[in-house]
Design a protein around this nucleic acid. Structure first.
Lengths: 190, 190, 190, 190
DNA sequence: CAGTAAGCGAGACGGTACGTCGGGTCTTACC
DNA sequence: GGTAAGACCCGACGTACCGTCTCGCTTACTG
C-alpha cells in the first residue's frame, strides 16, 4: 500500500515483522511507544523502519489497514448473503470483535484517517450495509432510523464490545451473542 | 483538582480561561496542538500554563474531569430517580451527549486515565448504574445481561452518538430519541 | 546611588542588610546564586530586593561600588601624599588587599562595569595615579612604561594577591610586603 | 576530553567549528550569548550542539581546555629549557598572551573549573614552574618569595597584560617586553 | 564463482515540543 | 506607604522524539 508497489519475499517478511512488533509494542505502551521502540521490537534498524513506513502516522495507518483487511476477509468468508439477517449480524459481530481484539490499539487511539476510509467502506461498510439494507427491505430491521445512523450505533456497540473482550471481562462468544441480542431486541425485558 | 487546593478568584478565572482555550484549540488542531498554542490561545505565558497544569497530560485530564463534572451535574439535575426508567435513560443520553458534544476531544483522544476513574464512577457511573439496577429490579430491563456489560454497551452507543452529533449528521434531540429507542427496543422492526 | 536619593534610616538599614547578605551568598555560591537566594538570605521579599536594586547587575555593581568606596576610604586615610612613594605603594597594597579579601566575588566575577568606572577612577585611580606620577617625577619609578600600563600591571598583581590571601595561602602582611617588593625591585635576585 | 573518546574526521571537524563559533560569539556577546546563538553561528542545530557539549558549562570548559592546550603547545615549542631564564620568561609571556588574546572570554568569565586544573598544571604550570625553579637555582630569581607565590603574581601580571592587549591599549610585543622587564627588574627606576 | 547492486544497521543531524528555571514586572493585601 | 507574597511574561536551558541523511557492511543476484 505504502510507497512501494514492488513485492519481494524479503520485503514482505520485514513488513510483517514490523507490523507485528508495532502491534505488540503499541498494545503494551500505547501512544508513548516511540519509533525506536518499534524498530527495536521488530529487530530492525530505525532507518529501515522509516524505509518501510515514511511516518509514524503511516505505520499506524498500515496497522489499521491490516486490521481492516483481516476483518474484511472474515466478513467475505462469512457468507453473509446466504443467511438470515439476524445470523448475518451475529457473524459480523464475531468477525469484527475477533479482529478488534488483536488491534485494540487502533480503536483505543482512534485512528482510521483519510485515506483508509475508502478501504474501510469497501471492505467493511459495504457488506455490513448490504446486510442492514436487506434487513430493512425484508422488514426485519426498523425503517425509521437512517441506515447511516444505525450503522454508526452498531459501530459503537462493537467498539465497546471490543473493549470488553480485550479486558477479558467477557468471552468472545458470550459477547457476540449479547451484543447481537441487545442490538436486535433492545435491552427491554422480553 | 490539580496541584493546588487554594482557590482565589483570580486563580479560578485563569484556570477557566485556560481550560476554555484548551478545549477550543484541541478541538481545532487535535493532538497536534502544542502547549504554546494553548498558552497563546488562553492569553497566558507558557510558564503560567505549566504553573496551572504540570503536564500536557494533566491538562487533558483536567479537561476530561471538567467534562465529567459537567455531565455529572446535568445528571444530578435530571431527577433520574423520580421518573420511569425509560425516561431516565433518555435523560441520561441527552445529558451525556450534550456535554460530549463540547468535549469531543476527550472522546476522540480516549483520555480518562487513572485518577479520574474514581470521579467518573462517582459522578456518572453510580447514577446511571442506579437507574439500570432499578430497571432490572422493576423488570423493565432484561436481567440476563450483566449490569456491567449493559453499561458498557450503553457507553458505546453514547460514544457513537456523540460522534454523530459532533459531525452534525443528526440533531441532538433526534439522536437522543433514536439511541434511547434502539437501546430499549432494539433495531428489530416492531 | 540607585534609583532613590531619599535616605531614611530604614531604607539604609535594609540596603545594608541586602548588600551584606548578597556578599555572603555570592561568596558561597558564586554566580549560581539567584536573586531569590539573596532575598531569602537578607530576610526580605524578592520584590523588595528589586525595589532596592533594579537588576541583578545593579546589585553586583552596588556591591562593587561598596568595595570601591571602602577601599577608597582606606586610601584616603592612608596619608599617601605625605610619605615616600615606596611606602605609599605598600599602603595601597595593604588597603586594597584588605578590602578585596572581603569582596572577592567582585574580583572573581570580573564586575566593575560602565557606570562605576567614574567612581573607581575618582576613589582609587586618582590617588594611586598620583602616587605613581610622583614616583616618576621624583625618579623613583621608571619612566619608560606608560603610567596606564604600569597601573594595569599593578592591578594584576593586586588581583592575584587578593586571590592568594583569600585562599589563605599567604597572610595579608606578608603578601603586602612581597607584592610591594616584587613590584618595585622585580623578581630578579639582588 | 568531553563525553566521547571516539574520534572521527567529521566529529573533529564539527567540534572545531563549534568551538570556533563559540569563541567568536562569546567574545562578541559575552555571557549573554545563548546556546542557540552558538549553534547558529556554528551552522549547526541546537540539538547537535548539545550532542557535542552536554552543557553550556562543558562548552566553556572545552573552550578553556582548548586555550590551555594551545598555550601549552606554544610553551612546549618555545624551547624554554635551552635558553637563559630571562629569555624563557619573555617567551612564556609572549606565548600565554598571544593565546589569551584569542580566548579572552575564558579570562573574562573566570572559567577553568575542576577537572582541567590537572591539565593546566601539566601543560602550563609544570613548564613555567621548571623555568622559575631553574631561575632560583641559578640565582637569577630571588629565593625569598615562595615559588608558588611568585607564580601567582606572574599570573596576575599575565592576566592584566592579556586585558591590555585585548583592548588594544598596547601591542603584543611591547606588552611582552614591558611585563617581562617589570617582572624581572621591578618598576623602580634604574 | 567473482563482482556488483541493493538492502541494511548505525548513528549524526536539523527541527521542534516538552518541562524547568531564573530574571524582571506587576498586583494584592498586610502592617 | 512601604513591605511580603506571589502571579505573571519572557526566554534560556537541557531532554526526547521525529524524519532525513550518509556512511560502511553484508547479503543476494548476475555475468
Amino acid at each position: 500500500m505504502n510507497s512501494s508497489l514492488i513485492h519481494s519475499p524479503r520485503r514482505d517478511r520485514t513488513t510483517a515483522a514490523i507490523l507485528d512488533a508495532a502491534a505488540h509494542v503499541l498494545a503494551a505502551d500505547g501512544a508513548a511507544a516511540s519509533m525506536a521502540d518499534v524498530a527495536n521490537a521488530a529487530g530492525v534498524g530505525r532507518a529501515t523502519l522509516y524505509r518501510y513506513f515514511e511516518t509514524r502516522e503511516s505505520l499506524l495507518e498500515a496497522l489499521a489497514a491490516d486490521a481492516v483487511a483481516e476483518a474484511g476477509a472474515r466478513l467475505a468468508d462469512a457468507g453473509l448473503d446466504g443467511v438470515p439477517v439476524e445470523l448475518a449480524i451475529e457473524r459480523i459481530v464475531r468477525a469484527i470483535v475477533a479482529v478488534g481484539d488483536r488491534y485494540a490499539i487502533i480503536v483505543r487511539e482512534g485512528i482510521l484517517p483519510d485515506r483508509e476510509d475508502e478501504e474501510v467502506e469497501r471492505l467493511l461498510g459495504m457488506p455490513i450495509r448490504a446486510v442492514f439494507a436487506r434487513g430493512v427491505r425484508t422488514e426485519v430491521l426498523r425503517p425509521d432510523v437512517t441506515l447511516d445512523v444505525l450503522l454508526e450505533l452498531f459501530g459503537g456497540l462493537l467498539t465497546s464490545t471490543i473493549k470488553l473482550v480485550g479486558q477479558r471481562r467477557i468471552g468472545l462468544e458470550d459477547a457476540a451473542a449479547a451484543v447481537t441480542d441487545v442490538f436486535l431486541q433492545g435491552s427491554r425485558a422480553q
